[in-house]
Design a protein around this nucleic acid. Sequence first.
DNA 1: CCAGACGTTGTT
DNA 2: GTCTGG
DNA 3: CCAGACGTTGTT
DNA 4: GTCTGG
Length: 220
Amino acid sequence: MCSHYNLKAKTKDIENKFNARYETPEDDELEIIANGYTHLRMPVICNDTPHQIKRYHWGLIPTWTKDTTQARELANMCLNAKIETIEEKPSFRESAQHKRCIIPATSFYEWKWLDSKGKNKEKYEIKLQNNQIFAFAGLWSNWTNKNTGDTIYTFTIVTTQANELMAEIHNTKKRMPVILTSEETSLWLNHTTEFEHFTEIAQKKELTAISLEPQNNLLF
DNA sequence: CCAGACGTTGTT
DNA sequence: GTCTGG
DNA sequence: CCAGACGTTGTT
DNA sequence: GTCTGG
């Protein structure tokens, strides 16, 4: 499961890459290692405002969520969404139809299990081969807390079957996020391409996996 | 029927 | 809101 | 990972 | 003690 990723880039480069502008001012250079379970607000570009970069919480909260307790549970569950079933799942289908987004990133993390118990794991950081900024395919949602009237904006990262390299690393479940180049993001946002096609797109990505030193804890 | 889930995968 | 397991 | 279950049947 | 759901 893709539950940690990194966005390390100059804000100007992110803006230029995706032809979009930050909604609110940012530092010149970002380096954010996002841990899904902390539900950080991360930069996203949504289908309804494709030239704006907004910050949404990672961990999708469906519109029908009843209260904050349930919201917390769902946000923890909905860090990822399988592309094969997003049209069916109650948590995702509304978003799959109307609420798509892309999530700028420069790398993500995965562990290779070296034994069946997961006692020994090898950490990897995965990037595009040319080390370019890329984007995950994602879904967004807006949830209004009936008690406070506050609306929380959230997103999830869409996953698909692993390609050859990722299956080597994510050797238990063999999944990986749907990775898009800046040229491919409009295919996802504009809703014009079949879901199966994104699996093909993801399979073809040239990725580089860097084995991380055991002592590198990346603040996790 | 109706309370409880609603998700992915092994918290990388 | 809608589905589903018990 | 680690708290919590560890069972079967299928509501009356 | 060991499995497993979250």
